[in-house]
Write a protein that binds this DNA or RNA. Structure first.
Length: 118
DNA sequence: CCCTTGACTTAGA
DNA sequence: GTCTAAGCCAAGG
């Protein structure tokens, strides 16, 4: 399992209407302290179909500069994420990753059950 | 191997 | 609110 795959898997889990930070994605992917590399992994995000726009800098700020930054903001607003000035209110819109350490296998089992049972 | 580059983060002023 | 400095770390030359 490669580094980029770990990052991309986590970004993919961020639901519509929620956001995460570079740092939190790095931690959730099992690579704490590699926030800058998360941005690296997102360079090919569009090609991979990842919701890259939901990843923000610390404090809910868009770090992507210029035109791309405006594009990101637009995409987020379309998803219904409100902006307070130039930043997102993480109190309301931050996605908290479930801790994968505590039994990812169990979670798969539960999901299968819920599909069967309703 | 050394050095530079970044869509980072935190702490201080 | 802004700005700077230092720490951080994978990728690429």
């Amino acid at each position: 399992m490669g580094y980029f795959e770990d990052i991309q898997r986590c970004v993919r889990r961020i639901p519509r209407g929620k956001t995460a930070t570079y740092g939190s994605v790095a931690r959730a992917a099992g690579h704490p302290g590699t926030a800058r590399q998360v941005a690296w992994a997102l360079r090919d995000a569009t090609a991979l179909g990842l919701p890259w726009q939901r990843v923000l800098g610390s404090g809910g700020k868009i770090l992507l500069k210029g035109e791309p930054g405006l594009h990101q903001r637009m995409l987020l607003e379309i998803e219904g994420i409100p902006f307070k000035g130039s930043r997102v209110d993480l109190k309301k819109c931050e996605f908290h990753f479930p801790c994968a350490k505590a039994g990812s296998r169990v979670r798969r089992t539960l999901r299968r059950k819920s599909l069967r049972g309703g």
